[in-house]
């Protein structure tokens, strides 16, 4: 063979547009907040709505984050994800009711401890439920999207009926823990304490997920598996085990989201997970399948937009999120931060 010269690459500086493009979705949240500030006449109203929107967005993110990984890593369309939200809410609220003296005490520490116990209980229950759901319902239909939709939808219906059998058909009204009731006043705006807690919990979950996905080997395997599962297996990793772990973690996060969402709305029903699925699917789709960061940004956009529009034009609130999805998909058809290739 003819000896060729060595390949000597040089670092070329990418254009500004190329460097900025990946960060554009991140800018949408502050842009939307600024637009909201321009449209809402009162600063205090804007602040209240913004915190409310961020809290709502964080809770949607918690519920949706597991689903986006399941979508991306396992190529599974799980319409039953809402079942984990409902079951998590019922288990968590049951635990909170059992811890009545702690939730009724005017002590933030005791209230948060009770909330933590309820969240752990809900996550354990939904994590185990996720394991059973993956084995019994999802595993037989890997690779068959239509069957996945049918059987996971069936799983959701069964779970809802089991909730009705165990807890009864009536909706359950719940009071938030004593110290989390009411609001604090900041810059003339009333900020609900519980919403501030929800923002903190959502942020903590997002940072923890990023830490695991970016700094650990298991996170590396998950990120690689979302892109090319076949190659991850060819490197020697048992992706099926990772699938199960991710499914359980995603279910547990949905359970956590269920507890938070239930306390946010102060009422829980067997259908609450099913109802939340519309928002969950919207953020998973606009975020980009398999992208935790995209899901996070999408959830914040949905939360903020819904709150701003509900204040400015209540009738338009119902369609605002669909409009957001249409606009984002026209801009980026694979979602804001696409990870999974079209299949």
């Amino acid at each position: 063979m003819t000896q060729a010269p060595d390949h000597a690459p040089k670092m070329a500086r990418a254009s500004l547009a190329h460097r900025v493009a990946p960060w554009l979705p991140l800018a949408l949240v502050p842009v939307l907040a600024v637009l909201g500030l321009a449209a809402i006449p009162s600063l205090s109203s804007w602040l209240t709505l913004t915190i409310s929107g961020l809290a709502m967005g964080m809770m949607i993110f918690i519920m949706a984050s597991g689903l986006t990984l399941v979508f991306g890593l396992m190529d599974v369309i799980n319409f039953g994800h809402g079942a984990f939200v409902s079951v998590g809410a019922f288990v968590g609220v049951t635990v909170l009711l059992m811890l009545g003296p702690m939730t009724g005490a005017p002590s933030l520490a005791l209230n948060l401890a009770a909330l933590l116990v309820a969240v752990i209980g809900a996550m354990l229950a939904t994590g185990l439920m996720g394991w059973a759901f993956e084995r019994a319902i999802v595993r037989p239909v890997y690779g068959h999207h239509l069957k996945q939709i049918l059987v996971t939808m069936g799983g959701l219906i069964v779970a809802e009926q089991l909730i009705i059998v165990l807890w009864g058909p009536e909706e359950i009204y719940i009071a938030r823990p004593e110290a989390l009731k009411g609001a604090i006043t900041f810059a003339g705006a009333a900020l609900e304490k519980y919403r501030l807690v929800a923002v903190a919990v959502g942020l903590a979950v997002f940072l923890a997920m990023r830490l695991v996905l970016r700094r650990t080997r298991i996170g590396l395997i998950v990120r690689a598996g979302v892109q090319n599962g076949e190659m991850v297996q060819a490197l020697g990793y048992r992706l099926r085990l990772v699938f199960v772990g991710v499914f359980m973690a995603g279910s547990a996060l949905a359970g956590l989201g269920g507890v938070m969402w239930g306390l946010y709305q102060e009422v829980i029903t067997a259908q609450m997970g099913n109802q939340a699925m519309i928002l969950i699917f919207i953020v998973v789709i606009i975020g980009g399948l398999g992208s935790v960061e995209g899901c996070f940004i999408g959830a914040l956009l949905v939360g903020l937009l819904q709150n701003y529009v509900a204040f400015l034009e209540p009738k338009a609130a119902l369609i605002s999120n669909i409009g957001l999805m249409v606009a984002i998909l026209m801009w980026r058809p694979m979602g804001m931060i696409p990870v999974v290739k079209a299949k």
Partner: peptide, 13 residues
């Protein structure tokens, strides 16, 4: 190759 991972992450994996 895993396009969204760095060269280093591809090798570590």
């Amino acid at each position: 190759i895993f396009a969204d991972l760095t060269v280093e992450e591809n090798m570590v994996l």
